[in-house]
Amino acid sequence: MKIEIVESPFEPATRLSVCSHLVPIVNFLEKSGAEFDWATGVIPDKAVGNILLSEDDIDFVLIEDNFNIPDYLFLDRFRNMIFCKKCWCVVEKKSPGKVYNSSIQPR
């Protein structure tokens, strides 16, 4: 049985957490061995929204095998990211040297 993502009530992203729509996916991936850049935390990018960086490629097959993905979550394999259309919150693979439109930059 696949995990459901709860639409409402929701919690917005903070410095130490993605939006509640992405929390189950991030937690599941971490338990499966994925690593995220919590030292930098969630980057509030003025153009894109709130971004959490993944240290490795995102395992989209693992996500699709274990979650019912609602229409408002977009799994973008080409850009290696997961985007919440409701909260403008993103999980994306870290790209060395990439500069974000924020005062916070990856460490």
Rank of each mutant, 00 (worst) to 15 (best):
S17W: 10
S95M: 05
E7K: 15
K46C: 02
P96I: 04
I69P: 07
Y100T: 02
D71M: 10
D59V: 10
C19L: 09
D45N: 05
S20K: 05
V23T: 14
D56H: 11
K86H: 09
L16V: 13
E30S: 13
D71G: 09
R77H: 09
M1G: 06
Q105R: 04
V61L: 14
N101D: 08
F28V: 01
N68W: 09
D59I: 10
K98T: 04
D57W: 04
F36R: 05
K31L: 12
C87P: 01
G41H: 01
V6M: 10
F28Y: 12
I104W: 01
E4V: 10
C89G: 08
A13P: 06
R77S: 12
P9R: 09
N27W: 06
N80W: 05
S8E: 15
V42P: 01
Q105S: 07
I104C: 01
R15Q: 15
E11P: 00
W88C: 05
A47G: 01
R15P: 03
V42S: 00
L22M: 11
I104L: 11
S32M: 12
M1E: 04
F78S: 13
S54T: 06
D76Q: 10
G33R: 09
D65P: 00
R15A: 14
I58E: 14
A47F: 08
S54M: 08
K2A: 03
P106M: 03
P70Q: 07
V26H: 06
P44I: 02
V90W: 04
L73F: 04
W88R: 04
L73T: 03
F60T: 11
I25H: 09
S103N: 06
R79P: 00
P44Q: 02
K85R: 14
W38T: 07
L75S: 13
T14K: 14
S8T: 15
L52Q: 03
P96A: 08
K86S: 09
I82C: 06
L75Q: 13
C87A: 07
N50W: 00
A47V: 06
F10T: 12
K98S: 02
D56F: 12
N68R: 14
E55A: 08
I43Y: 04
E64M: 15
D76Y: 05
R79G: 02
D57T: 08
V42Y: 02
R107K: 15
P44E: 03
N68H: 14
R107D: 13
A34K: 07
G49Q: 00
S54C: 11
D59T: 11
C89Q: 00
S95G: 00
C84K: 07
F36A: 08
W38H: 12
L75M: 11
S103H: 06
K85T: 15
T14I: 08
M1N: 06
C19A: 11
F78G: 05
E64S: 14
Y100Q: 02
F60H: 12
L62M: 13
F74K: 14
V91I: 15
R77D: 09
S17L: 12
M81Q: 15
A13F: 11
F78T: 14
K2C: 03
V23S: 11
E64K: 15
K93S: 05
V42A: 02
F74C: 10
V48T: 04
L75F: 06
G49K: 00
P12T: 11
S103T: 11
G97L: 06
K2P: 15
N66F: 12
K31V: 04
F28I: 00
N101F: 04
F67V: 02
S8F: 14
E4G: 01
I51H: 01
K86T: 08
